[in-house]
Structure formats: C-alpha cells, structure tokens
C-alpha cells in the first residue's frame, strides 16, 4: 500500500504537468483542430461534391484518398507541438523557475504526454470525421482496416515526436528546431528516398526514412495488402512528351506491416534515449 502511495506521489508532478501543458497549448490546439476540420471537410465533402470528381468505388478507397493529407498534418503537428519541449526551457530560461520544483525528466515527460494528448486528439478528430463521411457516403459498417490505419498513425506521430524531441534536446532555439525538423522530415527524407530509389531501385528499401514508414498509414488500407511492394511505371514512348523515349520509374509503395511497426518502435525508443542522454548533459 505504502509503495503504491509513493508511486502515485512520484507520478503526481507528471500528471500536473500534463494538465498544465494541455492548458498552455490550448490556443495552438484549437487552431489545429480548425485546420483539421477544414481539411477533412474539403477532402471528404467539397471535393466529392464536384460533379466531375467521381466518388471512389469503395469505402476503403475513400479512406485512402482522405488520408492523403494525414502525413502532412502529423508532420506539422509534431514539429509545432514538440519542437519547444526541451529547448524552450533553456532558451526562454523558464527552466530556472521549474527545474528546482520538479525532477527535470518528470517535467519533460509531463510536457511530452501533454502535447501527445493534443496531437493524438487532432488525429482522432480527423479519423472520426473521415469515418463519419465514409458512413455518410457508403453506409455502415466502417471498415475495420481504418482502425489499424489509426493505430499506425498514432505510432507514426509518436515516432515523429520522439524525433523532434531529440532535436529539441540540443538545439538552442524553438524556431530553429521547427525549421530544421520540418526541413528534414518534409524535404530531407524525400530527397534521400528519391536518390536511393534512383541509384538502387528495388535493391534497397528506404526503411531508414520516416516519410517512407509513414506510408504504412495508407498502405495498410489496401486490401489485399500490396504484394509486391515495389512497382515500376513506364512513362513516355510513342509520340509522347518525352520525344518517344521511355522512362521507367520505380516506387516502394509501403513497408511491410511487421517491419514498419518494428522500425517505428526503434525510432521511438532510439530517439528518446538519445534525447535523454543529451538532455542530461545540458546545463542551464
């Protein structure tokens, strides 16, 4: 009983910090919720209302289309919610006030879970709206693969957040952290994937890339699951745009479910450990 009480007492600062963080980020959260609703409405309703734009044949295809924006949404949310999680305590010097009051790991843990709660809420709202629209167009029941996709999206956003938290543990300013992580996640990984694909084609699957791992969110909705997962398209030929020449472009559609989940978990654990090591060494 005593042990349980101590355990709870030790956890209380984390819980207080979660609640405080949620209140602190309220405004940012409302803005994101607004954007989320707007995107879901545009993608799931306005686009479908355009006469020439045909509604996908199946509910799953509708979800795949609708989730095209989820990677961007999670990426923006992760960058904006988690970039200041550690470095702001140093750059804004708020650490001088809070570090003497709470173990700094508990503080960061509380801040992390507070922000994660909000980001997960944003994703949940998006999925919920998509599910409702799916139901509106195709009737019930909602395909259970959407729940699998939702679970992968949560895992993906945790991986993104641990990646951003890692950068926040050694960067000096919040703005720089946002810019750097955004550039790496949005542009860096995609450029690297493009080069790897061009050079190595189907010989090397870009499993290092968070962007590629994110494709599992929509990849898991394919029924049956894509096999093979590497496809090639041929462009040009005949009297086409490339002067009769043919181009073959390859593409990895999605990682396998097992490998994708494993690598996302490795990302989460690895970057959290690195962030903790750097955070420990950092001094105010």
């Amino acid at each position: 009983m005593e042990i349980r009480k101590d355990y709870y007492t030790g956890l209380k600062p984390v819980l207080y910090t979660i609640v405080f963080e949620v209140k602190k980020q309220k405004k940012k959260f409302y803005v994101f919720v607004g954007i989320t609703i707007l995107i879901a409405f545009l993608v799931g309703y306005v686009l479908m209302s355009i006469p020439n734009n045909l509604l996908p044949d199946t509910q799953l295809d509708f979800f795949i289309n609708g989730l095209g924006f989820i990677l961007y949404l999670t990426l923006f949310a992760a960058c904006l919610f988690f970039s200041g999680i550690i470095c702001s305590e140093y750059s804004k010097k708020t650490g001088f006030i809070v570090f003497p009051k709470i173990n700094k790991y508990k503080l960061i843990l509380g801040k992390y879970f507070g922000n994660l709660t909000l980001v997960v809420a944003i994703i949940t709202i998006y999925y919920l709206l998509l599910a409702l629209l799916g139901f509106y167009y195709y009737g019930g029941p909602i395909n259970t693969l959407l729940f699998s996709s939702y679970a992968i999206a949560i895992l993906y956003v945790i991986a993104l957040s641990s990646f951003v938290t890692f950068f926040s543990s050694f960067m000096r300013s919040v703005v720089v952290t946002i810019i750097v992580t955004f550039l790496i996640l949005f542009i860096g990984f995609n450029i690297a994937d493009g080069i790897v694909l061009l050079v190595l084609g189907d010989k090397f699957e870009p499993l290092y890339s968070l962007s590629y791992l994110g494709t599992l969110i929509t990849g898991i909705l394919h029924s049956p699951f894509p096999d093979p997962r590497y496809v090639e398209f041929t462009l040009g030929g005949g009297d086409g745009a490339f002067g009769g020449r043919e181009f073959t472009i390859g593409q990895w559609i999605t990682p396998s479910i097992g490998m994708g989940i494993t690598l996302l978990l490795i990302y989460i654990i690895g970057f959290f450990l690195l962030a903790a090591i750097l955070f420990k060494r950092r001094q105010l």
């Binding site: 007492t9 600062p13 910090t17 405080f20 209140k23 001088f96 006030i97 809070v98």
Partner: peptide, 27 residues
C-alpha cells in the same frame, strides 16, 4: 526551499494558473 534564480521567466499563462501549478508541484 524556495528559489528565485536569475531574472524570472514564465510560461505565458495567467499568474493564477502558474502559481497553482507550482503549488501543486510542491505538493
């Protein structure tokens, strides 16, 4: 112990919200 270290910098919340949070942290 109560500390005031350096020029105080606070999260942008109300005085009440901040003080309530700090009091909670101190149990």
């Amino acid at each position: 112990i109560g500390f005031l270290i350096d020029i105080p910098a606070f999260y942008n919340m109300t005085a009440y919200q901040l003080l309530r949070y700090f009091a909670n942290l101190h149990n």
